[in-house]
Simulated scan of single mutants.
Amino acid sequence: MTPVLVFDLETIPDANGLRALNGWDDLDDTEVIERALAERKEETGNTFLPLHLHQIAVVGCVFRNDKGFQVRCLGEADDPEQVLIQQFFKTIDYYTPQLVSWNGSGFDLPVLHYRSLIHGVTAARYWETGQDDRDFRYNNYQSRYHERHLDLMDVLAKYTGRANAPLDQLAKLCGFPGKLGMDGSQVWQAWRDGKADEVRAYCETDVVNTWLMLCRFRLMRGELSRDAYEQEIELVRAHLESVDVPHWKEYLQAWSKG
């Protein structure tokens, strides 16, 4: 089978970037970020910063191939951003997987692009569009309508933004656990308060939700038989049951109630 890499980012405001752009040299990281968020809210009514000012704190992944199912966050909580980014693209260089996301085209990939540019990260396979490998001419990671990157939210909404659905709600409607513990708007506060492990756990549950939605999508369009679909779902359950950590116990408990 073609390897599949489901991915999701958790980000925090880029204190160094905000300091450099605004000349706030006399402020520490927390002060820089809080000031930027306050100004952003005054200007726009919300605290969501432009994508190039999102620093990647966590890269969560589900990896599925012939050898089985894995879920984890890349690197360690204290790894520099560029290390996380390079690990992500090295995985693509090595496996050439199908990438799967929920709103990856609207958020995760543009953030990766900007942050890779800032750090000078190389990602040759990811950017291939047929110059060196003809197989990428009509199916590459860059085209919105190709499937080397499948943005499930975008596809299900028929590429119409007003039809987008949130992962949490749609996963719950399909009988899956959805988000647990926090949402993206709470990541900076949790990270600031030293709760990196909780943020990483949250990101892992999100990529599992996305994987489960991919399985349901593949069932819907006839790529998986009902038996094959059930086998994929049970593979996930069995894997999570074998991992003795609190967030997977909570996730499985929520799943059983769904």
Rank of each mutant, 00 (worst) to 15 (best):
Q82T: 12
I56M: 00
D79R: 01
V71P: 05
H54A: 05
E43A: 15
V71Y: 08
R64P: 05
Q87R: 15
C61S: 08
Q70N: 14
L74N: 05
E81M: 00
C61L: 12
E43L: 13
L49M: 03
T44F: 11
H54N: 02
V58M: 03
R64A: 12
T44I: 11
A57L: 11
K41A: 13
A57P: 09
K90V: 12
V59N: 05
K41W: 09
H52T: 04
R64Y: 12
D79T: 06
K90Y: 06
E76D: 15
K41G: 02
F88L: 01
I56P: 04
F69I: 10
V58Q: 04
Q55P: 05
L74I: 08
T91P: 10
K41E: 15
N65H: 01
F48E: 13
E81N: 01
Q70A: 12
L74S: 00
L74M: 10
H54T: 03
V83F: 10
I92P: 01
T44P: 09
E43M: 06
G68E: 00
Q82N: 13
A57M: 07
A77I: 07
I92E: 03
V71H: 04
I92K: 00
Q87S: 09
Q55R: 11
F69T: 05
I56G: 07
D79A: 07
R64E: 14
T44D: 10
N65S: 06
